[in-house]
Design a protein around this nucleic acid. Structure first.
Length: 385
RNA sequence: GCCGCCUUAGCUCAGUUGGUUAGAGCACUGGUUUGUGGAACCAGGGGUCCCCCGUUCAAGCCGGGGAGGCGGUA
């Protein structure tokens, strides 16, 4: 279904316009003063003010419109105050396009050993030097403002799954109270967006309750949090079959921390507009390569004399100019170019998937595109010559 | 020639007063990675403990002989 596009190339305000839908899948544009974000969008993760092993211009060359930054890591090093004094995160890291910052809430889960959780917020010890720090909704909003984030995330708590229903409910309701405080602390900042984060685990009624709490507050976009934390793809898709439906049609929907290529495709199919994941960059540094024919592990001996590119249909620098044999060699030799080229390829491939889905949704052919996507993977990597 | 030291996994090496199935790092073969504490982590294969003889219930370890290597010395 075609929808007239309302966004402009360089808006003074933050806005979202849907251009087309195909089933539950949507494509559109998020407009910000720092540039447009084509949706569905994949956001590379640049935790410590860098997408590891990548120059910002290279990240852009893969097709990324927006990056992720991280409140928790940047507040500890080099500190939000220093980044603010140096002109903000965009200037600091040489990325002038939009940046979304995580609120630090996820680290409440991933750094569980260090934390102390109260109604007020969380206190924890730095993994760097053991110093004590506190994060509250108010402090998280302040840090993300100092960083200059374009899309600010509410401070939330993300429980690991599986967890019992009482724990999920208690955690979700705390996150909703924090969302209210985040909204209040964020205030009115034209050109900047604040996203709420739905929680509720795999409990449909809790997801609905969470969505209602968030929409009552009112946000510029809505994230589905608390997935891809150990529940498995089937359970995650089960949740995504209903969760996006509880969110406003006219606001971006962001699935946090997802995922593998088939996770991403399945999420878009179910109405998700934005995603982020460390997988393409982390896997790139550790030898795992995502291709149209599935995953290959470049360190495997079978690639040692293979003159072919990683992915014959990919136009990234790694696939255009280097053989699997070379990439195998530089990985095994611990050469830095290995992480650079493999990360570049993975990010490029993820962006190719996104572009393919955007085009397919606009053309009303998402199902055919998806069938081709899965057929390529089912074919598997072709044996070495 | 003589003196000293050394010989244990592909490589570099641990191995206690003799005591279960001889270990580590690297290398090798695979695997894992989902809002990055990760160029990380996990698992696996791989041994005539230089050889022979002896002592002992039991030898990588103790004794004797031999082979090879390194260093010193005439």
């Amino acid at each position: 279904m075609k929808i007239p596009r309302k966004g402009t190339e360089m808006s003074e305000k933050f806005s979202f316009s849907l251009n087309a839908t195909d089933g539950a899948a949507r494509s559109g544009v998020i407009s910000t003063p720092r540039g447009d974000i084509r949706t569905p969008a994949f956001m590379p993760v640049g935790t410590a003010a860098t997408v590891k092993a990548m120059m910002p211009e290279s990240v852009r060359a893969t097709g990324a419109d927006i990056l992720l930054g991280n409140t928790y890591h940047l507040m500890l090093r080099p500190t939000a105050e220093r980044i603010e004094r140096l002109g903000g995160l965009h200037k600091f890291m040489n990325w002038e396009r939009p940046i979304l910052t995580d609120s630090g809430g996820f680290q409440v889960m991933s750094l569980a050993e260090l934390r102390k959780l109260t109604e007020e917020g969380v206190t924890f010890k730095s993994h760097i030097d053991g110093s004590k720090h506190a994060l509250t909704p108010e402090r998280s909003m302040e840090i993300q403002r100092m960083l200059g984030s374009d899309i600010v995330m509410c401070f939330d708590e993300c429980p690991a799954l599986p967890a019992d229903r009482a724990r999920i409910a208690e955690s979700m309701r705390l996150s909703m109270r924090w969302a209210d405080r985040s909204r209040e602390a964020f205030g009115d900042r034209p050109g900047h967006a604040l996203f709420g984060i739905m929680q509720g685990g795999l409990e449909q009624d809790l997801r609905e309750e969470s969505a209602k709490a968030l929409t009552d507050i009112g946000f510029d976009g809505y994230a589905v949090g608390g997935l891809a934390v150990g529940e498995g793809q089937e359970a995650m898709f089960g949740c995504l079959d209903y969760a996006p439906g509880y969110l406003p049609v006219d606001k971006p929907r962001y699935l946090m921390g997802v995922g593998k290529p088939d996770d991403i495709v399945g999420a878009v199919k179910r109405g998700i507009d934005m995603m982020d994941c460390v997988l393409p960059s982390r896997s790139g540094r550790t030898g795992q390569v995502f291709t149209r024919r599935g995953v290959i592990n470049i360190k495997n001996a079978r690639h040692a004399e293979d003159p072919r590119p990683l992915d014959a249909e990919c136009s990234c620098p790694a696939c255009s100019s280097y053989s699997r044999a070379y990439l195998h060699h530089v990985f095994r030799a611990n050469e830095m170019i290995s992480g650079m080229l493999l990360t570049w390829h993975n990010l490029h491939y993820f962006q190719d998937i996104m572009q393919g889905m955007r085009d397919a949704i606009a053309a009303g052919s998402f199902d055919a595109w998806e069938a081709e996507f899965h057929a390529g993977r089912a074919q598997g990597d072709i044996a070495p010559i």
